[in-house]
Write a protein that binds this DNA or RNA. Sequence first.
DNA 1: TATTCTGGTTACCATTGGGTAACTACAAAT
DNA 2: ATTTGTAGTTACCCAATGGTAACCAGAATA
Lengths: 120, 120
Amino acid sequence: MRDERFCNSNCPFTRAIGTIGNKWKPIIINVIGTRTIRFGQLDSIVPLISRKVLTEQLKELEEDGLLERLAYRELPPRVEYKLSEKGLAFLPILEYIKEWNLKYEVALIPKETDRINYVR
Amino acid sequence: MRDERFCNSNCPFTRAIGTIGNKWKPIIINVIGTRTIRFGQLDSIVPLISRKVLTEQLKELEEDGLLERLAYRELPPRVEYKLSEKGLAFLPILEYIKEWNLKYEVALIPKETDRINYVR
DNA sequence: TATTCTGGTTACCATTGGGTAACTACAAAT
DNA sequence: ATTTGTAGTTACCCAATGGTAACCAGAATA
């Protein structure tokens, strides 16, 4: 999940990639954005992720200080997630990536059946 | 390597992550930077990557229009890589990631033995 | 009494990622 | 005649990723 060798690199960029350089984390950070969101919501909004993987990713994001986790001792349980200052500071980078993609992406017409309908 | 479901999403951000959202591609793009570089150089500079994986990543980056590949019909063969306009436009984003990491990273003192000495 | 609801955890299994080593072509050097 | 060098490709194999399904608590609801 997290590449420990990358995270232990003495190159700050390599460390950053070790932390957020996989396919799920940028998606999750983008979905959360500026709101507070519950586990179940994330599970249904993030496309195609399993609960197990979502749990793992959230735990790592919290460990790396991007995410704050608030567990209420209720029944049924309620857990809320929101981005920390560090996580919020990452959002503009995701915006740049969006703009970059829109500007340079080669047009592709995916088959209807292969599409993920994913709206933040 | 590349997640086809992500690449076929109708969300431009998800597609972008499908394209560059893995651990090797940002590293490779960063290593290439503004220079022209040969396969063998990349293989020795990019930390811990195998030739097989490097080949795959380079091929995908070329297919996605981030990279230009120049093969000279010589013996021994010579192949040079450099970033396309799209690839070059991605470099500032990598700079933001570096800055973000330097600003917010929690200090960690990796064991000497676990370090990768990686200098661009 | 049985079911539902939430946010997990766990065991199990299939798929994939990614590493190693051998092989290629052919010219030039030894 | 053999080795060297480049940029791969291929076969093989092991480790890691990630999916599914079952299970948990305990209150509220039917």
